[in-house]
């Protein structure tokens, strides 16, 4: 199946099939549009690295999932939760709000001394991490460490980390969304749309939403990242959360916060959006974090990343070795045999 997507953030053509009826805001025919790109999800034209970034094949069993190096499908997260619920956190935000940079910073933070005593203990998605970091480094454009745009995929898929905090282990699954699906619902609040369906799925599956707002964006005159559009984004997101996952925890992340300092005259806009966000999500909000633009502050350790990771983990019970009796109670019948096979390793 050939899918097509439009690079222009305001265009509704996102991962659509060529059925001859594709809309184009520019009024172009589909073939003439200069922004259109093919997203060929089933071709073999991808490089090896790109293939590795894809999730595992459909016929995977628990063993290959648990020792896999590639992205984890949502339905396979259960294998990490045979004894304890794993933590699931999903990064969401408008395009270029720093979601993917935040992910790579998380990985980096786990290798550094940090206030939250978090350490990297392993990952079942090593290749996916490697490819994510490679894409970050060698992305288009001249600025170092500026990630490539995250491509929206039909299925949700997650990166995995095993994190040690204060000598206790936690499984954390991290979802990275494509910003374009959120700009899609700002432009067109159609509950039948592909973007709406994608967001609904991400929001429904997660336990913690890491909502990123680019602190430097509110002041620009670009209609797509204006204060008003940020507020529309907040409104639409609040509606989806209320409908599909009202108990989800939310961490509000003000990304590129260092750039606020350079825009004192517009600080009020920043404050207005932030206040609006906090008012809208006060019931679900478990933390607020500010991260700097690592592109701008090269060499400076990313701030608050360990705090964000810790907030993701507090929603998860500890991974502890239970008594056999306790385990038997917790384990669902359908996975008993799997657990039997994996119990020493888990």
């Amino acid at each position: 199946m050939m899918l097509y997507t439009c690079d222009y953030s305001g265009c509704a053509v996102k991962n659509c099939e060529d059925n001859g009826l594709l809309p184009c805001l520019e009024g172009n025919t589909f073939q003439d549009c200069e922004h259109i790109k093919v997203v060929n999800i089933e071709s073999n034209s991808e490089t090896d690295d790109e293939q590795n970034y894809e999730y595992e094949e459909d016929d995977t069993d628990f063993k290959s999932i648990i020792s896999s190096r590639n992205l984890i499908k949502f339905e396979n997260i259960k294998f990490f939760g045979l004894e304890n619920e794993p933590s699931i956190a999903t990064l969401i935000g408008l395009p270029n709000s720093g979601k993917t940079s935040l992910l790579t910073s998380m990985l980096y933070m786990l290798r550094m001394d940090n206030e939250q005593n978090l350490n990297f203990m392993g990952s079942s998605t090593l290749n996916a991490w490697s490819n994510l970091i490679s894409l970050t480094l060698y992305a288009y454009g001249n600025t170092p460490r500026h990630p490539e745009r995250t491509i929206d995929k039909p299925n949700t898929q997650y990166l995995h980390l095993l994190i040690n905090k204060d000598d206790k282990p936690y499984d954390l699954l991290l979802g990275d969304t494509a910003g374009e699906i959120f700009s899609g619902i700002v432009e067109n609040n159609d509950i039948e749309s592909q973007e709406y369906e994608r967001i609904k799925k991400w929001v429904s599956e997660t336990k913690t939403l890491l909502i990123c707002l680019d602190s430097s964006d509110y002041y620009t005159e670009d209609i797509w990242i204006s204060k008003e559009n940020h507020m529309i984004f907040i409104d639409r997101l609040a509606e989806i959360i209320a409908d599909f996952n009202p108990e989800v925890s939310i961490v509000f992340i003000q990304t590129k916060y260092d750039k606020v300092d350079e825009n004192h005259e517009n600080f009020q806009y920043h404050q207005e959006v932030n206040d609006y966000f906090i008012e809208k999500f006060s019931r679900n909000l478990i933390g607020i974090a500010k991260t700097i633009s690592i592109t701008a502050k090269q060499g400076v350790p990313p701030e608050d990343i360990d705090k964000i990771l810790s907030l993701c983990l507090i929603n998860t019970p500890l991974l502890e070795v239970h008594s056999q009796e306790d385990m038997d109670k917790n384990i669902l019948n359908e996975v008993t045999s799997i657990h039997q096979h994996l119990k020493e390793w888990i």
């Binding site: 790579t104 910073s105 990985l107 980096y108 290798r111 970091i133 490679s134 970050t136 480094l137 170092p144 460490r145 690592i294 502050k297 090269q298 060499g299 400076v300 350790p301 990313p302």
Partner: peptide, 9 residues
């Protein structure tokens, strides 16, 4: 690669 750039010009 996972380190914020210092001299990675």
């Amino acid at each position: 690669l996972a380190r914020p750039a210092e001299s990675q010009v």
